[in-house]
Design a protein around this nucleic acid. Structure first.
Lengths: 72, 72
DNA sequence: GCATATTGTAATATATATGTTACAATGATG
DNA sequence: CATCATTGTAACATATATATTACAATATGC
């Protein structure tokens, strides 16, 4: 599970196309981000958060993996 | 105020050079991000967060501006 | 004043995020 | 089945994030 964009988007009843328009990118970009195949820029992440009414942590946070401090 | 990278970095006693090495970029990239002249990728944002032991919201969140809901 | 560490910044090159266009796959609905 | 909405994805072009190299500016310690 890469991020929560898809879940968040559906949560506010937006299609990829609608979300794309609101954040100023193309539908393909949204699709690829949801699929975890793109590494979006911070600005785009923020725009998406605003559009789905969530925060960066809620949509994009990923716990640090391979930690030697056993926190995951 | 663009982001909290500089404050967070100083908070864990790292120089730009040291932070850059830990997150796998060059010092210049860190410098420009701190200056608000770069729009870093999500992956880099996450790496920085791990390095300074904070979350995306703590380091990179920016309240939505120009809101018609008077929240700022 | 001189050497060193840290940071700011510029020019050019490279990698990659994103756009453009197009087509395929799926699901709903007639 | 045909049609439409939605989504996945591919090829190529463009914009930009980042690297590389280099030099300047500031602060600290000699």
């Amino acid at each position: 599970m890469e991020n929560q964009v898809k879940v968040s988007r559906v949560g506010v009843h937006l299609t990829q196309q609608q979300l794309a328009e609101r954040v100023g990118v193309t539908r393909q970009t949204i699709s690829l981000i949801e699929k975890g195949k793109y590494n979006p820029t911070l600005k785009l992440c923020l725009e998406i958060c605003y559009a789905v009414n969530k925060t960066l942590d809620e949509v994009f946070w990923i716990e640090k993996e391979s930690g030697s401090n056993g926190k995951n």
